[in-house]
């Protein structure tokens, strides 16, 4: 690995045209709800992920946004094969990852890595930083010869902007932002192609968030990594993502380039979500047209029929209760959206 990793971020910012790396088709994850102590009876299911399709290209960042409980983390765990899907496929290098086992599965695990949300609990407090970052080499001994590992770990520390001399320290001796860097170093150890980041900066202070975002962007430019970047902060996602998928109750309701989603959203939910984001400029106060959604997100155990969003949608008609809108390009704008009455909001933001 070269050492000057974090420099040329701006030069190669957001490469657009790589080949398709990952093709997710009709992914579904239902968690059964059981009742009864001795004889468990299935009484329903939490429809956490409910028919998700998307493609991820080499060197691209796909942002995934949506409110709490809409299925973002479940999607991440499915892609890591930490959960088995109820239905659906995810094709990586021509193979469905859910049909792999043995050595093929281990290869997959090398190729797809994850950075977790909580830098305070996701690292084992009893392991040194060196052991944490080097652990993937224990699981995949062929990735680095034993004698070479310490040096590799020190390189990784340097890559993420930590002092290589701190290899023997423990997680509690680092700040939140530094711990998130440790998590990133660990994810990089096996030189993956894809990194799934589940809320990687949400737990960090504003002044530290920017450091971690810049690091992720620099590493992407250097290694041609692809990211799936999950966050509920729409401003952060706009900053880092090339394409964005908006989720609501287990489904993608709108997907498009960063510009399409942020400047020409056609789904009422996306429009409401964007309008609610506070702008850090008091002059915007009375110039923003905020769409106030009524109520809360319904339970994913019992989602509304037809369009899941209809209970909060101000445009809902009878058809919305009976017919599920497909995620498909519509007249209003060429990017795919799942709404019978998709239209540009005017004036847009």
């Amino acid at each position: 690995m070269a050492t000057n990793y974090v420099s040329s971020a701006a030069a190669q910012h957001h490469p657009r045209h790589g080949e398709v790396l990952l093709d997710v088709q009709g992914l579904v994850k239902h968690f059964p709800i059981n009742q009864g102590v001795v004889f468990k009876r299935r009484v329903g299911a939490v429809q956490a992920v409910d028919g998700v399709n998307f493609q991820l290209r080499r060197g691209e960042t796909l942002g995934v946004v949506g409110e709490s409980g809409c299925g973002k983390s479940t999607l991440a765990r499915l892609l890591m094969r930490l959960e088995t899907p109820t239905r659906g496929k995810a094709i990586l290098e021509g193979r469905d990852i859910y049909s792999l086992n043995g050595s093929e599965l281990r290869r997959l695990r090398r190729n797809v890595q994850m950075v977790m949300q909580d830098p305070y609990t996701s690292l084992n407090p009893r392991m040194t930083v060196g052991d944490i970052i080097g652990e993937p080499f224990e699981i995949h001994p062929d990735a680095a010869p034993r004698g070479d590992r310490r040096r590799r770990v020190q390189e990784l520390l340097e890559v993420v902007g930590l002092n290589p001399e701190h290899i023997n320290r423990y997680p509690h001796q680092f700040s939140g932002g530094q711990r998130q860097r440790i998590g990133i170093a660990r994810a990089l150890a096996l030189r993956p192609q894809i990194i799934v980041c589940d809320e990687p900066v949400s737990a960090l202070d504003v002044s530290i968030q920017a450091q971690v975002i810049n690091l992720l962007e620099g590493l992407q430019a250097e290694f041609g990594l692809s990211y799936i970047f999950i966050a509920h902060d729409l401003s952060v996602v706009r900053h880092i993502a090339d394409r964005v998928a908006v989720m609501y109750l287990g489904k993608i309701v709108e997907v498009g380039t960063e510009t399409e989603i942020y400047e020409r959203p056609t789904h009422p939910y996306t429009q409401a979500l964007l309008s609610a984001v506070p702008v850090p400029d008091p002059r915007a106060r009375n110039h923003r047209e905020i769409i106030r959604l009524e109520g809360d997100v319904p339970s994913p155990a019992n989602p509304p029929s037809g369009c899941h969003f209809r209970t909060r949608c101000w445009k809902a008609q009878d058809i919305c209760a009976t017919q599920e809108p497909k995620l498909t390009p519509r007249q209003a704008d060429p990017h795919p959206v799942a709404c019978h009455f998709a239209e540009l909001r005017h004036p847009v933001r």
Binding site: G177, A210, I213, P280
Partner: peptide
């Protein structure tokens, strides 16, 4: 000043974010 410069903003898609160096 550093705080205001380091937040990504919905209405401004910048390049690299400004950071406050060091730790709290």
């Amino acid at each position: 000043k550093g705080l205001l410069a380091s937040i990504p903003r919905l209405d401004m898609r910048g390049q690299e974010l400004a950071t406050i160096k060091g730790l709290p």
